[in-house]
């Protein structure tokens, strides 16, 4: 199963431990993660379900292409990283 890990910056707002969850696309993976941690959803995705403007997602170190629909494929043993986009210097 893919594992999902989060930037430490989010942890002071909402606890997001690394977890393994099922899913073949980033949308499926994140939905599975947030089903077990609903408060975290709004910190990563905006209210339209897109990746927040200043957040970034990597699958095995590769930045995703589809920030809106989160359709990027996720291999079974992949590591998904959810981090902040660097902005503001």
């Amino acid at each position: 199963m893919p594992s999902v890990r989060f930037t430490r910056n989010i942890q002071r707002h909402v606890e997001c431990p690394t977890r393994e969850v099922n899913g073949a696309t980033l949308r499926e993976v994140l939905d599975a993660y947030f089903q077990g941690n609903e408060p975290a959803r709004g910190y990563v995705l905006d209210d339209t379900g897109k990746l927040r403007k200043h957040m970034a997602a990597f699958i095995d170190g590769r930045q995703i292409d589809d920030r809106d629909r989160l359709s990027d494929g996720v291999p079974a043993a992949a590591v998904v990283d959810i981090v902040q986009s660097l902005s503001g210097g």
């Binding site: 910056n9 707002h13 408060p39 709004g42 990563v44 905006d46 209210d47 927040r52 200043h54 902040q84």
Partner: peptide
Amino acid sequence: NHGHFGVKLHRSRDGGATWQEIAAPKY
């Protein structure tokens, strides 16, 4: 407004001693 993490609302029912996050408006 957390910027990276979006807009959140928090409520206190004890004059500000403790706070809980509540729902934010959703379009």
